[in-house]
Design a binder for these strands. Sequence first.
DNA 1: TAGCCTTATAGTCATTTTGACTACAAGCGT
DNA 2: ACGCTTGTAGTCAAAATGACTATAAGGCTA
Lengths: 253, 253
Amino acid sequence: MIKTTTTNKTIKVSEVTSVGTANEPFELPDGVLRGLSIDNLIFGLDGSELKVLLIKRGEGIKTGEWALPGGWINNNENLRDAASRLLSDLTGVEHPYLSQLKTFGKVSRFPAERVVTIAYYALVSADDYALTAGFSASEAGWFDIHHLPSLVFDHHEILDYGIKHLQQEIRHHPVGFKLLPEKFTLLQLQELYEAILDKKLDKPNFRRKIMKMKLLSDCNEKQQSVAHRAANLYRFDKKVYQRLTQQGFTFEV
Amino acid sequence: MIKTTTTNKTIKVSEVTSVGTANEPFELPDGVLRGLSIDNLIFGLDGSELKVLLIKRGEGIKTGEWALPGGWINNNENLRDAASRLLSDLTGVEHPYLSQLKTFGKVSRFPAERVVTIAYYALVSADDYALTAGFSASEAGWFDIHHLPSLVFDHHEILDYGIKHLQQEIRHHPVGFKLLPEKFTLLQLQELYEAILDKKLDKPNFRRKIMKMKLLSDCNEKQQSVAHRAANLYRFDKKVYQRLTQQGFTFEV
DNA sequence: TAGCCTTATAGTCATTTTGACTACAAGCGT
DNA sequence: ACGCTTGTAGTCAAAATGACTATAAGGCTA
């Protein structure tokens, strides 16, 4: 599970470098696109709390304030690569499945000059990461989406949009599994849905519905060291899902 | 219905203006963002053929070739406003409900220099528009999505993505109505779904499902001048939809 | 060790929804 | 008047859903 709580244990970074050319309308590192940035919205699950990954800005405008981990795109870099690099540099989170969320471009969303930002998002499992604040972040941490600090620019708007998007997406695509460890119990899956959809579900009915889809393969293993009857572990079977999808199956919860 | 056929009747434009500053790495009109553009993907329905709105480029790179109607964003202009202005200027189509589709930014998607483009899309009803090619387009026309001319840059990729997106969206949100005239018959609605989902649906079952949602209000009017029994006309009731949505209803076909 | 938690998992049952059909109605056109 | 085409209503078995009940497995505690 995610180690940090709301007022989080975070990782401090040693020092901050500030690059940029003088006498420009706005200071920018060399070799990056002007007027275009990336922001990453990374969701994680801590028990049954949905969390989002934030950094404390270590350079540029609004240093010291909390923000989505993002930054500038290199001239010769594809968008998703930029998102991935920035995320990894700022937080240490590597190789999540980043998909594009939406581009935010209100004229005055960014001070100093017009900057349009492309938001990417990903769901990551607690297994898959450890936080290490990077070059231009002084801290990185996970925050309960219901208890957020104040964020720079329009990052609250991006986050709200992302949560709504996630609620939609999770009902029609099997993306929720990305938030869980590889092997999980049916109750974990159910609690995930309850956390994101923000409502209770009936346990027997939920498991019946999920099992009927045939998307889970039985690990033939039980939970360890729980103070009650141990539940069976399952993993999501991507191959079966792809096969069914080609046959016209659509995932619905 | 849409007047033009595949090899379309199109609208010619008188002349083409080319604006831009000399000695720049790439000629661009004044007052626009560098490196960022908009492209619009506009779908229309002609009987039961899904069509897309294209223009023949009248200026800039690739003049004379077919493309999605798009262009540059003004410095002080919000993104959707830019999309709307460009669409209107290039084709005469006014005030469709434009939503953002995706941002395309492969390093070499555009020749000469790096340009990232934000794709918007909209569904328009045959009632709502008449084509008038504008300043920087020499022709505008509707094309059957199965019989397209070759398109500039990565516009084929944008279109393919848009069609897939539409197929997803139309199943989970009542957006299909936007492609129909205000008053329509159940068969028109069904044919729309058949055209977009690319499969046949059972007539009695389709109408039963739609009617049970209570989203259509009866116009108490019949079709006119058809060579068979006239069907009842309905309109989509947005207010009921919003009410139901708040109660947790979700549209599914 | 017996009984008490807690969670897992199987199953019941009435109601609703689906998918595959059949049947009949209403007009136009010959 | 008959047939052709499309509209609209209804049947029926199968499947899915929602609200439950019942029982199984453990660890924990008195």
